[in-house]
Amino acid sequence: MANTAIAAEESTTNVWSGGTTPMKASYGKLMMWFFLLSDAFTFSALLIAYGMIRYSHSAYEGIFEDFAFSQEYWPIPEMVFEAVPFLHGIHAPLIFVGIMTFVLILSSVTMVLAVEAGHRMDRRGVEKWMLWTLVGGVAFLGCQAWEWSHFIHGADMSNNVGSNTFMGANLSFNQYGPPNFAALFFFITGFHGFHVFSGVMFNFIVFYQTVTGKLERVGHYEMVEKVGLYWHFVDLVWVFVFTFFYLV
């Protein structure tokens, strides 16, 4: 009968070993929340460090149209991130990073739909939406790989570092601005990218367990909810990285 399907969820899975359910949340979900809180501290520390280091460098004062890269001042982000694959030489500020943002939001939506299907014990639905979530995650990682590669190899506008002309970026020098600019780019987007990577791994494990029918035998799809929380958090962090690194 249809209505026997989710009876298990509230009665058995949420009870802790003490026999009660603190805050009406299962142990796994609550611990995931506390982990995410600690991770939020890490990411805020990185972003606050970005803000502090940025404002201890001078900003570009001239006219926006005449902007050129220099070691003297912090670059305007949309002048740095203005390339799109296959459109070489076309000035398209923030377009590519916008595509990445929409990809990540969409994969967050498909994750919500997977959780919703899991509540209804709909195995086919969980399979379908987890697969779309995986596609979104891998697409985002691919975009980021391209962006890093472009950032490291450099844009057409080269810049003089000391007596040498320098193209691209590494941890000591970069053509876009002060050394800290590239260092923070690598650190913050790299740390976030690593979270996306591990999220894709978790999603794959849960997808695999769904396809093999393991979660159905367990009797509930709470694993989908737990990795879902992690995946939404990765999206949440990207919303902040997008604003503070690319827009402002």
Binding site: A2, N3, T4, A117, R120, M121, E216
Partner: peptide, 12 residues
């Protein structure tokens, strides 16, 4: 075989 519940269109 576990029977899936129908989706609630309002939720979706």
């Amino acid at each position: 075989q576990v029977q899936a519940l129908p989706a609630d269109p309002a939720k979706i």
